[in-house]
Design a protein around this nucleic acid. Structure first.
Lengths: 116, 116
DNA sequence: CAGCTATATAACTAGTACGGCATATTTAGG
DNA sequence: CCTAAATATGCCGTACTAGTTATATAGCTG
């Protein structure tokens, strides 16, 4: 399963963040979040399928821990957009007011753009 | 709408990447992707709701362009996991084989962890 | 073994997502 | 005005999601 889909759910992101603080059992995770234990188990299953977490059985407990590797894919996807952050932030504010009105610089084409 | 959810769909990520190469009209985007025009319009609506893109009407055309700002939220969410990447990458390989078998280092607890 | 604890799975439900086709809307152009 | 082009919206079917409760499974303990 792809990490983007796995991280789409806010509760799963919460679980990841919680696990980021160290390995946890299902019980501990269930307490931290406002969900039933089965719900947590299912989210963990999705995270496992995405390989975002790994499990270590220990008697009747299961210690879940973060596996950050698949997050690289997310990070790499973000990469091309990074250089745009700084540049466009000022433009954003300017645009928030007149989003509907201004056509591109030229008449029918947006002219060459920053990535040219 | 939250950027994670917006990016969960692979087609929307494709549209974002396409737009990363410069502003495009709906028609152009529709050609690039294997979807109907209405489908593209709907995806663009979601991206707009997440403020990941902005539109500029130009006659009957609409020029869509990336607004990278919300991607910062994603990037910031990744931040805490970054330091784990390097460290755990070697451990991962080791684990790929014996994920089910090895109990934690200690008997009932995973012993102290990096931050416990 | 009996019973408790910890976790996973099953069955069900309500809501939402994504696609398609058809249609509305807006603008351009003769 | 009438038509065509570009885009958005409505409606529908199918599929998946995320939650619940109930139950199964596995280990622990007396």
């Amino acid at each position: 399963m792809d990490p983007f889909a796995a991280l789409a759910d806010p509760n799963r992101r919460l679980l990841m963040s919680e696990l980021g603080r160290g390995p946890q059992t299902v019980g501990a995770l269930t307490e931290g979040i406002g969900l039933s234990q089965p719900a947590v188990s299912k989210h963990l299953r999705v995270l496992r399928a995405a390989e975002l977490v790994r499990v270590r059985p220990d008697g009747q407990r299961r210690w879940y821990e973060v596996n950050p590797a698949p997050l690289r894919e997310v990070d790499e996807w973000l990469e091309p957009f990074r250089r745009q952050w700084a540049q466009r932030l000022d433009r954003l504010e300017q645009h928030l007011d007149d989003t509907e009105s201004t056509p591109p610089t030229e008449s029918t084409e947006p002219a060459e753009h920053d990535h040219r």
